[in-house]
Amino acid sequence: MSNQILDEELRDCFQELSNVAVGRAADLLARLLNTFVIMPIPVVNLLERAELSMALSSIEDAESVSAVCQGFTGSKIAGEALLIFNDASFTDMAELTHYTGEITKQIELELLMDISNILIGACLKGLAEQLDVRFSQGQPYLLGQHLNISELLKKNTTTWQRLLTIEIPYKLEGHQVNCDLLLLFTEDSLPVLRNKVSYLME
C-alpha cells in the first residue's frame, strides 16, 4: 500500500481520534472557567513546512497574537504544541479567571501558561490513551507576545519539512476568547503513527 493512501488513512483516523481528545479538553476548560465552550471541529492535515501559516484559519485575520510552545515525545513519536491566542482574548480571559487587577504582560503570560497547561495536557492525554502511548511533555515556553502570525511563525525554529498537523480552534460562548491549539507531529513520527493507525483499523 502506498504512503499516499496510508497518509489519507492516517489523516482520517486522526480526525476521529482528535474529536474524542478535543471533547475531553473542551469539557475540562468549560468546568474550570464555568462557561460554555463551543465545540471545535479539529482540522487534520499533512502539510509541508511552508504551508503551516495557512493552517491557522481561525485567527489568520488577527492583527496581534501571543503564543506558547511545548514539545512532547513518546514511543518514537515527537512533536510540539502551539497555543496561539488572539490578543483580544485577554480582557475576557482575566474576567473568567476572576482577575480584577491591571492586565500586564506578566499577567497575560500567566493566563497563557494556565490555559496552555489545560488544553495541551488534556488533548495530548486524550490522543495518547487512544494510541496506547505515553507522552512526556517538555517545559512550555513563550514563543512571542503581541506579534502578527507571520512574525510568530518566524520565531518557531522548527526545521521539519513535512508535518501531521491537528488544528483545534477554541471559542468561548459570549466572550471574545479565541485561540488555536496546533499539534505538530514530525515527519519522522509518521511511520510510527501509520503503524498505530493500521492497528486501530484492524
Results as ranks from 00 to 15, higher is better:
1 M>N: 01
3 N>F: 07
4 Q>S: 10
4 Q>T: 13
6 L>Q: 10
6 L>H: 07
7 D>H: 05
8 E>R: 06
8 E>P: 00
9 E>P: 00
11 R>E: 09
13 C>F: 00
13 C>N: 08
15 Q>M: 11
18 S>F: 03
18 S>K: 03
18 S>I: 00
19 N>C: 04
19 N>M: 05
21 A>N: 08
23 G>E: 02
26 A>G: 05
26 A>E: 01
28 L>K: 11
29 L>Y: 04
31 R>L: 10
32 L>K: 10
38 I>N: 15
39 M>V: 07
43 V>F: 12
46 L>E: 00
48 E>Y: 03
49 R>N: 14
49 R>Y: 08
50 A>P: 00
53 S>W: 03
53 S>K: 14
57 S>F: 13
63 E>H: 13
63 E>K: 13
63 E>S: 13
66 S>H: 03
67 A>S: 15
69 C>K: 14
69 C>E: 15
70 Q>V: 06
74 G>S: 07
77 I>G: 03
78 A>R: 13
80 E>A: 13
82 L>P: 03
83 L>S: 03
83 L>K: 04
84 I>V: 15
85 F>P: 06
87 D>E: 12
88 A>R: 12
93 M>G: 02
97 T>Y: 09
101 G>D: 14
101 G>N: 05
103 I>C: 01
103 I>F: 04
105 K>T: 11
107 I>E: 08
111 L>M: 15
112 L>K: 12
113 M>W: 00
117 N>K: 07
121 G>R: 06
121 G>K: 06
123 C>E: 02
124 L>D: 06
125 K>C: 03
128 A>S: 11
131 L>W: 00
132 D>W: 00
133 V>I: 14
133 V>E: 07
134 R>T: 12
134 R>I: 09
136 S>Y: 10
139 Q>Y: 11
139 Q>S: 11
139 Q>G: 01
141 Y>P: 01
143 L>D: 03
143 L>W: 05
144 G>W: 04
145 Q>N: 12
147 L>V: 11
148 N>K: 10
148 N>C: 14
148 N>T: 10
149 I>H: 06
150 S>H: 11
151 E>S: 09
154 K>N: 12
154 K>I: 14
157 T>R: 12
161 Q>M: 02
165 T>Y: 10
165 T>H: 02
167 E>S: 15
167 E>P: 01
168 I>A: 05
169 P>M: 06
170 Y>R: 02
173 E>P: 02
174 G>I: 05
175 H>T: 04
178 N>W: 08
180 D>M: 14
180 D>E: 15
180 D>C: 08
181 L>R: 01
181 L>G: 08
181 L>V: 04
188 D>L: 08
188 D>Q: 13
189 S>W: 09
189 S>K: 04
192 V>L: 01
192 V>C: 05
195 N>Q: 11
196 K>Q: 05
197 V>N: 01
197 V>C: 00
198 S>W: 00
199 Y>G: 03
